[in-house]
Design a protein around this nucleic acid. Structure first.
Lengths: 201, 201
DNA sequence: TTTTTGACCGTTAGAATAAAAAAGTCAGAA
DNA sequence: TTCTGACTTTTTTATTCTAACGGTCAAAAA
């Protein structure tokens, strides 16, 4: 049914607003339902449980993000330019939907399996994009590296290190605009050095 | 007194063993005292409180470490060689005394001030060593960079990112030998690329 | 006087329990 | 087939309780 899909999306969009703002644990099904004047039971008609809704919401956002990302990157020419574009987009989304990924931030948390898988897929997707950018650079003669897979991996680890260290330095639990700006500056600087290190002489 | 110092060190060494194995919160003053057949009250004669003992223990280890590090690095010639030596030593100590730094691993924990300061100083010390290695490279014409301070910072952030991501990927709480080996490989690879990116053409 | 101790006290981390709130179900209405 | 209000079950939170721990001190030992 057309209508069914519309309602599903309505729910997902309401959920996205709540989850993005309050995170998984601090938003209730009742709240989401009230926001769009549905009964809570109706949410359970469309989604088997809360986690499914959460996962669907993330999936939804990921699709939007990945379309946007691919489109933006296709417009770039050099791989360096592409990587910088990736950083910029990435940064924007992380900042906007920070609380949506709260669960991903902490250690030793046993997220339910389906959830962990989704985040894993997001990381993999990122790695693939980055990898393809690196490969583009290799075939154009711009870059040179032994093990593109490993290089990609290290690049992503390093990014998250920069991210993490800045966000944990200031003890503010909710990161502010200033901090994200700082992260972006460092990440860009890092990318420049790293890519220079991969440049074919 | 000579003897006083000896006892202080005896206590510190016993504390180091416990703390390195079990971390701060999971070792008690009574245990440390029993290990060397002292009364608990005697520990409080030599150290005002538990935290002071912990800090002294870390201070003690840091002195040993830094002497060792400086000595090793002075033996190297190029800055690249120096950085790789730093990584190797660093890795060894982190692995051996992993639990000693447990408190440092987690987010949003309000470590007592004196403690935080010590860790801050450890990081600063590391940054200074690294910075001096970079500067060595610059003056020898080996390296070239706009902002050595920022480059150092990014380098350290990236290292901790690699560290962190490997240790949290496998859900084992206690990291094993294999994981540390993996970290070292990645860190070395990273250092090579990063330093290549800083090489003067 | 300096060093050492056993007995003691106040605080706190963790277990156990109770209360509140949320997740999730279902018979039946629209 | 879609939707709901009333219901049950599960999870989270608040509370109490207790044992263990950090820390003190008067007095003994050296």
């Amino acid at each position: 049914m057309e209508n069914q899909d519309k309602k599903r999306i309505l729910i997902i969009e309401a959920a996205l607003k709540r989850f993005a703002h309050y995170g998984l644990s601090k938003t209730t099904m009742t709240e989401i339902a009230k926001d769009i004047s549905f009964s809570k039971a109706l949410l359970y008609y469309y989604f088997p449980d809360k986690l499914s809704l959460y996962v669907s919401t993330i999936e939804h956002l990921m699709q939007v993000m990945s379309r946007d990302l691919v489109r933006s990157i296709d417009k770039t020419t050099t791989s360096t330019e592409g990587v910088l574009k990736l950083l910029q987009k990435r940064q924007g989304y992380i900042q906007k939907y920070y609380n949506l990924f709260e669960s991903n931030q902490f250690i030793g948390n046993d997220l339910p399996k389906g959830l962990n898988d989704k985040f894993q897929r997001a990381r993999t997707f990122e790695a693939i994009i980055l990898s393809s950018l690196f490969n583009r650079g290799i075939s154009s003669g711009e870059l040179k590296m032994e093990d593109p897979k490993l290089a990609t991996d290290i690049f992503i680890d390093a990014l998250s290190g920069i991210h993490f260290n800045i966000l944990t330095k200031d003890k503010n639990i909710l990161p502010g605009k200033e901090q994200f700006k700082q992260i972006f500056i460092k990440e860009r600087m890092f990318a420049e050095i790293f890519l220079a290190g991969l440049h074919s002489k």
